[in-house]
Design a protein around this nucleic acid. Structure first.
Lengths: 205, 205
DNA sequence: GCACTAATAACCGAATCGGTCAAGAGGTTG
DNA sequence: CAACCTCTTGACCGATTCGGTTATTAGTGC
């Protein structure tokens, strides 16, 4: 593991991305070390040199993702946004920006939730716990609903936006190109349209 | 293949579902005949008895899904719906009802779009062509926009609904339980809320 | 030229791959 | 009962791939 840390950052991220992609795409058991080595353009032996075993590599990735998530979650930036739509937009932007440089984390994280291999089952909590925390803080607040023409619509609209975010993620999962800026632009426009039609006149700035 | 058709319908669907699930989950190369045999509670040899080879089985599934899609696509039922939201709701209902009895078709179809194995690459069109046709007919029509308070919102709202449908699919992909009725109920409520807030008063019957 | 290090080609036994086949198990005829 | 037929599968095939190891190489500083 210290052997791995001695590498240049570029080489490290190449290897981590390859591993995240393979595990994310195939799951723990079906992803082979050879798959990862080929994707990272290094030899299979090097992977074992760096991480010792397949299981150690997987656990390293879980902890790596946990740290990344902790890093991007800026509670203050979110709390300062008092408006529901602004808050969703801000958190999405934060998320997207970080995934722009870490393109395979998203599918890896979602694959962890479906992982069933007994080899790593008891290690999954490293990540699942953290992602839960992340989601729980992006929450609908009581006074958000008051801005709606029909306050009872606030909950469903919030759920719809979460659903749409999952739709975006699903649409581009596995795709080799992902134009983040276009997606965010699209999402921003959708949010603007929803706000315009659901908010009372007085809250349309 | 006639050996397979001689089986009882129950046994046939068990085997097909197992195969759809494995190929859908792992992709062509990573899914093994043994995986499928275990999931179907039959022996590996039987799979070869029924289908001859792994490739033949995969192609059989492609054609099987094609037929199912052709079957559920009821053009008349859609054309008779003049309202955008009604049309989306109707097509979603048709889709959901059929997937209720064919729970693994959805993830199999979406996996086909990501398939890259050269063994089956030239056979994928069997299904991809058909699913394209299916989607192209669920289209936004010119006069739909006229019912909107802001006609330019019609396109984005339509896209949002498609996105949400993908979100639902993604959320329950791989999950072993999927309460179709609850999901449809949820979707219906969302559609009603959107309609209420986006349509001109005069179109809210 | 020499020592040290980092990367990998070659290799290991074990497991699994797609695919085959002959030995049953079970049922139907005489 | 014997003879026959159909269907299922355990056991097996050679080939490949698995996770993991090791011995050799290529590069670097002195």
């Amino acid at each position: 593991m210290d052997k791995f840390l001695a590498l240049t950052e570029e080489k490290r991220t190449t290897i981590l991305n390859a591993a995240l992609q393979c595990f994310g795409k195939f799951g723990y058991e079906k992803a082979s070390i050879n798959d990862i080595a080929v994707a990272a353009h290094i030899s299979k032996a090097s992977v074992f040199q760096y991480f010792g075993s397949k299981k150690h590599l997987y656990i390293y990735l879980l902890e790596y993702c946990k740290k990344i998530i902790e890093g991007i979650f800026d509670k203050e930036a979110l709390d300062s946004q008092t408006d529901l739509f602004d808050r969703i937009m801000t958190s999405s932007k934060i998320e997207m920006e970080s995934f722009k440089t870490q393109p395979f984390i998203l599918q890896f994280i979602s694959s962890v939730w479906e992982e069933t291999s007994p080899d790593v089952l008891d290690s999954l909590a490293i990540l699942t716990e953290e992602t839960c925390k992340f989601r729980n803080d992006m929450i609908l607040r009581e006074d958000d609903a008051l801005k709606f023409k029909n306050p009872e619509d606030a909950g469903p609209v919030f759920q719809m936006l979460l659903l749409m975010a999952e739709g975006y993620a699903a649409r581009y999962r596995g795709a080799d190109t992902f134009d983040f800026d276009t997606v965010m632009d699209d999402f921003q426009k959708n949010i603007a349209i929803l706000r315009k039609n659901f908010y009372k006149e007085e809250y349309l700035k």
